[in-house]
Computed example of a mutant assay.
Amino acid sequence: MKTADFDFPLPPDCIAQFPAKPRDSARLLVVGAGLEDRVVRDLPGILLPGDLLIVNDTKVIPAQLTGRKGEAKIEVTLIRRHEDDARAWEAFAKPGKKLKVGDVVAFGDALSATVTEKKDSGEIALRFDCAETEIMAALHRLGSMPLPPYIRKLRPVSAADDADYQTIFASRAGAVAAPTAGLHFTPELLAALDRRGVQQARVTLHVGAGTFLPVKVDDIAQHRMHAEWGEVSAATAEAFNRARAERRRIVAVGTTSLRLLESALDAAGKLQPFARETDIFIHPGKTVRSADLLLTNFHLPKSTLFMLVCAFAGTEKMRAAYAHAIASGYRFFSYGDACLLERAA
C-alpha cells in the first residue's frame, strides 16, 4: 500500500489556528451508515448508557526551548524522555548542523544540556545537567507550548495556548503534543455524559512530536513509528474487560487512546495492564479489535493518523467523510473539529 493512496486535497484555510470557544461547541461529524452533522455537546444524546469512554490523561509539557551554543541560537523541541534516564531526552534541534556530540547548549542560567548523540534520522540526544524535578521546573520557566508546526508557522505561541493546548483530563506530565480529541471536553459535557450513564476510564500515552512527522517512504509498510511511553492501569483493564463481558461499547477518545488499547490487548481480546513504550502503527490491513467507536479530529493528508482512521472505519468511507467535511467547512487537525467513527464490520 502506497503513501500516495492516502493523499487528498486540503485547502490550507481548513487547518484551524485556534480552538472553538467553548470547547464543546466544535462541530462533530458522525460517521456510521451515513454522515450526520452535529456538534460535540450532542454526545450525551448520541452515546448510550453503559458506554465506556477511554480517555488519555497525559499532560503536555512546555517542550520548546530556545538556547545558545556560544553565539549561535539553537531552537530545541523535546521529543521524548529516555526510558532509563530521566535526565536524557531525544529532541529536534534547529539548526542541528551547528551541533556536534559534546556540545553544551545553554537555555538560561539555570538549565543546560550536553549533546550525547546525533542520529541519522535528524534527531539529537541531550542530557540535562540537573535532576528531573529541576528540569521540569526549568521547562515551566523557560519553555513554551509545543504547538504543531503548521500552526507555529502562521502565528506565535500565546499565553492562551498554555490552557487551550491542554485537555480537561491532563494530569500526568510527559507529552510534547496534545491528545487533541480530548480538547473538546468541558465540565458541563462530562456532567451531561455522567447523567446519561456513560462511564469513563483513563489511560496514559505521552504523545511525542513524531505524531507530526511526515511519512517519507512510498510503501507504508516501510514506515517506522516513533516510540511513545504508555500505561494502562489494572483498574482500567478491569473496567474495559467488564464492559466487554457485558457487551457494552468501548469508545476510544483519540487515536492515542486507541493505539494504547491495541498495544495492551492480548490474543484473546482481554486488556492487560501495560507500562512500557509502544511504536504500534495502525493502517489498513491491520484489524482493530479494542474499540467500537472512535472520537477523533480531522487529520492531514498522507499522515499516519489518517491511515489509522481508514483502518478503523474503512478507507472509502473516510474518503467520503473527509470530502464532506472539506466541502462543509469543518476545521482540521489539533485545534479543529471532531468526528465520531463507527468501527468497520
Results as ranks from 00 to 15, higher is better:
residue 89 W to S: 03
residue 34 G to N: 12
residue 102 G to L: 05
residue 22 P to L: 00
residue 98 K to I: 03
residue 11 P to T: 00
residue 21 K to D: 07
residue 6 F to E: 00
residue 59 K to F: 05
residue 20 A to I: 04
residue 39 V to L: 03
residue 97 K to A: 10
residue 46 I to K: 06
residue 100 K to H: 08
residue 15 I to W: 03
residue 105 V to C: 08
residue 50 G to M: 03
residue 74 I to M: 09
residue 66 T to N: 12
residue 47 L to C: 11
residue 38 R to M: 06
residue 47 L to E: 11
residue 116 T to S: 06
residue 12 P to L: 04
residue 83 E to S: 14
residue 88 A to H: 10
residue 90 E to D: 15
residue 22 P to H: 01
residue 24 D to N: 05
residue 65 L to K: 04
residue 48 L to M: 15
residue 58 T to D: 03
residue 65 L to V: 04
residue 42 D to H: 08
residue 122 G to R: 14
residue 49 P to C: 04
residue 121 S to P: 13
residue 72 A to W: 14
residue 79 I to P: 10
residue 35 L to V: 05
residue 90 E to Q: 15
residue 42 D to K: 13
residue 88 A to M: 13
residue 84 D to L: 13
residue 26 A to S: 13
residue 72 A to I: 15
residue 71 E to R: 13
residue 69 K to C: 09
residue 52 L to A: 01
residue 9 P to T: 01
residue 81 R to C: 11
residue 33 A to F: 11
residue 79 I to C: 12
residue 97 K to M: 11
residue 101 V to T: 14
residue 42 D to F: 09
residue 83 E to A: 15
residue 109 D to M: 10
residue 89 W to T: 05
residue 7 D to E: 06
residue 85 D to R: 11
residue 40 V to T: 08
residue 93 A to D: 04
residue 59 K to L: 05
residue 114 T to E: 15
residue 65 L to A: 02
residue 76 V to S: 02
residue 14 C to Y: 08
residue 115 V to S: 13
residue 18 F to M: 04
residue 6 F to P: 00
residue 72 A to G: 12
residue 88 A to V: 14
residue 13 D to F: 07
residue 93 A to I: 08
residue 30 V to T: 03
residue 71 E to L: 14
residue 65 L to I: 05
residue 78 L to S: 02
residue 39 V to P: 04
residue 60 V to G: 12
residue 53 L to M: 15
residue 23 R to Q: 01
residue 60 V to H: 11
residue 91 A to I: 06
residue 17 Q to L: 07
residue 66 T to W: 04
residue 29 L to R: 06
residue 66 T to M: 10
residue 69 K to M: 08
residue 115 V to E: 07
residue 21 K to P: 05
residue 94 K to R: 13
residue 110 A to R: 07
residue 86 A to Y: 11
residue 109 D to R: 14
residue 57 D to Q: 15
residue 122 G to S: 09
residue 40 V to K: 07
residue 121 S to T: 15
residue 119 K to I: 09
residue 43 L to M: 03
residue 20 A to Q: 12
residue 68 R to W: 10
residue 18 F to C: 05
residue 112 S to H: 10
residue 92 F to L: 15
residue 52 L to M: 02
residue 27 R to F: 03
residue 104 V to C: 06
